[in-house]
Design a protein around this nucleic acid. Structure first.
Length: 420
RNA sequence: GGAGGGUUGGCAGAGCGGACGAUUGCACCGGUCUUGAAAACCGGCGUGCCUCGCGGCACCGAGGGUUCGAAUCCCUCACCCUCCGCCA
């Protein structure tokens, strides 16, 4: 949710910023009308309630003779209050529904454009070259008995897989490595709940918008998280945080569940896009003045994680038209995948400024003045399946074995994978 | 799964239909006193909304209900605690 005060204080600035995201001024005008109606009702209602409170108070002090007459008069006021209340409830529902659809204001520095117009800021690592035809991760891992897609499909259906043997060990090693890097940068490791209640999904903005992406349990009202961003963000929902406790930095490790509705036929091979994957997620709650720096910090952790794995990748500044509703700016890391000869997203980090915090009601106590919303940021330290793909495809050798990156070897306990 | 007890301001803890947005203690902030500090004393000290302001309204776990009036009575839900059962 955006700051609706801007609608009154700086309507033109707001309209200009949102126009970059393709939002017309009509949407804003409508919200402004709804807001005016709402405010009129609030003050009418408050005034009537004040009268009613006065009237009720008088009854308590009245003599028995006067009592009945006063009660009748108060009853009339009560009816007015009740009808104003229902009008207000309706006006507020319409207003918040309309306001919730407004996406976050894009960062002025975020590039213009639509999906595909991302600006490559830099690349790191050396692009691997092969004097043989490189295999993709499915070939490499199946040959190494590290991945079983057939049985994944038999047991759970399409887009499920077993990681086993060295595939499973790779997960443990990558996760622990990524958590160590995150911890060096002040992030506290967390194993969060994976099933959450509706409030957490609404607070983080995944409901109602992404309902079709979310798995929900049948007999209990639980939702499976699509990223630990949900449970990490919701940790400080409805909290008033002391300024000296900020920043709060976490690194959550959890499975993530996504229905991938609408992605039929897309990335069907292997484990690039699956219904269940594991991820180490960075999440920060920061002082509103600090979010820009924090965003750079999180991006640099991501780069450190992947350059430490000797991965070649590019850093992409995502254009305004391709931002999610809550992001003001987003950077992706795209790794080169020799198996498909393309750069593919392996991590992503977003600055959601106060947009997510407003829904979460995550605020910071201000000593002299009004309390303010904190800023929240999230980023992938390491998405296990995609990291595995990048590592095995980029570090493969002609015989189908894979050279383990130097920094990962101690975590894995071996220097070569898939050797016979 | 069964039985009971809870949920009130940063914390502790009163209040159980009308003067309660809430007694009190601690913590915290300011002042007096003091060379300084402590103690003592005095004052302040929740959150949100509406309003240029004065001020008003709402909030005692959440949501509904009864009533002229609810922290207080009734219903539903959530969470916490204790005991029993089951269990990694």
């Amino acid at each position: 949710m955006i700051d609706l005060r801007l609608l009154r204080d700086d309507p033109d600035g707001l309209a200009a910023a949102l126009a970059r995201r393709g939002l017309g001024p009509d949407d804003l005008d409508r919200i402004r009308e709804l807001d005016e109606r709402r405010r009129r009702l609030v003050s009418d209602l408050d005034q009537t309630r004040a009268e009613q409170n006065q009237a009720s108070k008088a009854i308590g002090q009245a003599s028995p003779d006067e009592r009945q007459g006063l009660i009748d008069a108060a009853s009339a006021l009560k009816e007015t209050v009740t009808s104003l209340e229902s009008e207000l409830r309706e006006a507020e529902a319409e207003h918040t529904a309309a306001a919730a659809r407004i996406p976050n204001l894009p960062d002025p520095e975020a590039p213009d454009g639509q999906e595909g117009d991302g600006v490559v800021l830099r690349t790191f690592g050396e692009k691997p070259t092969f004097d043989f035809t490189p295999r993709d991760h499915v070939e490499l891992m199946e040959a190494g008995d590290a991945l079983d897609l057939q049985r994944g499909a038999k047991v759970s259906g399409a887009r499920f897989a077993y990681l086993k043997g060295e595939g499973a060990l790779l997960e443990f090693a990558l996760v622990r490595y990524a958590i160590d890097v995150a911890m060096e940068h002040g992030h506290t490791p967390v194993i969060p709940p994976v099933l959450v209640r509706e409030g957490a999904m609404y607070g983080t903005g995944f409901l109602p918008t992404d309902a079709q992406q979310i798995f929900t349990t049948r007999d209990d009202e639980y939702h499976l998280i699509g990223t630990s961003e949900v449970s990490l963000a919701a940790m400080h929902m409805d909290e008033l945080i002391d300024e000296e406790d900020l920043p709060l930095r976490y690194a959550g490790y959890s499975p993530c569940f996504r229905r991938e509705a609408g992605a039929h036929g897309k990335d069907t091979r292997g484990i690039l896009r699956v219904h269940q994957f594991e991820k180490v997620e960075l999440f920060s709650f920061v002082h509103p003045d600090a979010s820009k720096d924090e965003h750079e910090r999180i991006l640099s952790i991501e780069e450190e994680v992947f350059s430490g794995l000797d991965i070649h990748a590019q850093v992409v500044d995502i254009p305004v038209g391709d931002l999610g509703a809550s992001a003001a700016r987003k950077f992706d890391l795209e790794a080169w995948l020799p198996g498909q000869e393309a750069y593919r997203e392996i991590t992503s980090c977003s600055n959601t400024t106060d947009y997510q915090a407003r829904r979460l009601k995550a605020r910071m106590r201000v000593a002299d003045g009004d309390n303010v919303l904190v800023h929240t940021l999230n980023g992938t330290a390491l998405a296990v399946q995609r990291a595995i793909i990048a590592v095995v495809e980029q570090h493969q050798r002609e015989d189908g074995t894979v050279v383990v990156p130097e920094k990962l070897a101690p975590y894995l306990g071996r220097e070569v994978l898939f050797a016979r």
